[in-house]
Simulated assay, not measured.
Amino acid sequence: MWKSVQRAAMATVHLVVAAAMCFGVYIFITVLLIAAIGTVAVVGCWLLPEAVLLIRRIAGAKRNLTALWTGREIPEAYPPMTGTLREQLRISVQDPGTLRDLRWMVAYYLYGALLALALPLWPLGLVVDGVWAGALRRSPVVLPLIVKLADTEARWSTALLMPSPKARLARRVEELKETRADAIAAHEAELRRIERDLHDGAQANLVALSMRIGLAKRAYDRDPDAARRLLDDAQDQAEQALTELRQVVRGIHPPILTDRGLVGAVRALASSSGLTVGVEDGGLEAGTRAPAAVEAAAYFVVAESLTNVAKYSGADRAEVRLARTRRGLTVRVRDEGRGGADESAGSGLLGMRRRVAALDGTFEVTSPAGGPTVIDVELPCVW
C-alpha cells in the first residue's frame, strides 16, 4: 500500500510539472506566431532561428522530464544552428527534428489541457479513494489510475519526441564528421610530436655521433689515444641516440603494452609516477585483451592523467579504475587535488579527448574548484 502511495505521489508530481509545462507551451505558441508573422514580413526574420532554438530547449526539458519518469533517455537529433542568417533560416525551415517538436507541441496543446483540467480533481479523488478503500478494505482505485495516466502521458511524449531514423542518421553522420576531424587533428599532433622528438633528440645525437667518428678517423694515425677517447664518446652518443629512439617508439605504441598487457602497463605507470596510486583492474587480467588501439588509448589517458596529477593537482594520491563492460573498456582516474582542470590550459586534456574521439569513445572531465578531479573514459570495442 505504501509503495502504491509513493508511486502515485511521484506520478502526481510528474503530471503537475507536465501540466505547468503545458501552460508554458500555450504562451510560447503566441511567441511562435509572432516570429512566423515577422518572418513573412521579412523585417523580423531574425526571430525565427531564435524561436527554433527556444523550441529545442522546451522539447529538451520535456525529454528530460519524461526520461526521469520512464528511466529511458530520449535522444536529440538537431543540426547545429550556425552560419549566416540565411543559412539559419534554411535550417529552421528544413530541420526534421524541429518539425517533430512542433507536432509534439500541437498534440501537447490538446492532451496537456486535459491534464491541467484534471488537476483540481486529483486531491478530492485521492481522499475519496482512501476512505473508500479503508472502509471496504479493498485496494485503492485512484492511485493506480494516476500512475497509469502518468505512464500514458510519458508514452505519448516519447513517441512524439523521438527523432526519426533519418534525423538520427543525419546526426550520426555529423558526429562521425566531428570524430574524423578530431582524429585527423590528433594524428597531425602526434606526427608533429614525433618529428620534434626525432629532431631535438635522436637526430641531434646521430649528428654528433657522425662528427665524433669523423674526428676519430682523422686523429687515428697521429693520436691514437685521442681517437680512442673520441670513439668512446661516440659509443656513449650512440647509446643515447638509441635511448631517444626507444622513447619515440614508446610514445607511438608502448612495448610494455605488448609485453604485460594493459593492467601490467598501468601498474608500471603507477609505480613510476611518484604518486601513491591505487589500481583496480576490474577483472581485466583474467579476461581477453582489448584491441591494440584501444589499449594504447587507455594507456595514454592514464599516463597523461597521472602526469597532470603530479604537475598541477597538488595531490600525492590517485586512483585508477579499469573495467570491462558489454560495450567496451572504461577508464576512471581520480585525484583529491585542487581541481579546476581546464582543457584550454594546455594540460593535455584536449589531446586525450581527441585520441578517445578517434575511436568513437566518450571523454568526460569533472573538476570543480577544490576538487576532486575525475576523468571518465569509455572506449567501445568487441571482446
Rank of each mutant, 00 (worst) to 15 (best):
L191A: 11
G130L: 13
G337C: 06
S347A: 11
A341V: 04
L121C: 14
A61K: 03
P96A: 07
R192P: 03
R168H: 11
P291S: 02
G282Y: 09
P254M: 02
C45L: 05
H199A: 10
A202T: 10
A296F: 06
T70G: 11
R289V: 03
R137A: 10
T243A: 09
A8C: 08
I375M: 06
R7H: 09
V16Q: 00
E195Y: 11
E343M: 10
V31F: 12
L359K: 10
P49W: 04
R260D: 05
V377G: 03
V263F: 01
T84G: 08
K62W: 07
T30H: 12
A185K: 11
T66Q: 01
R7M: 12
L329V: 01
S347D: 01
L322N: 04
T66A: 00
E178Y: 14
L85Q: 13
A270C: 08
V320K: 04
R354F: 10
R56G: 05
A241Q: 03
A216E: 12
A35C: 08
P75W: 06
D129G: 07
W104N: 02
Y299S: 07
T288D: 00
L231H: 04
Q203L: 05
Y299F: 15
R63F: 02
C45M: 12
S347G: 03
S4P: 01
V5P: 08
E87M: 09
R192T: 15
L68Q: 14
K177M: 07
V331Y: 04
Y78R: 00
V31H: 07
L110G: 04
A303I: 06
T373A: 10
L176F: 13
A59Q: 02
L230R: 12
T362K: 04
A292T: 08
L65C: 05
A238I: 09
A59N: 15
S272H: 08
Q94P: 00
K3Q: 14
V93P: 01
V333R: 09
V142T: 00
A61F: 00
Q240R: 13
E190S: 12
V147R: 09
Y111L: 11
F23Y: 15
D221V: 14
G283V: 06
L32S: 06
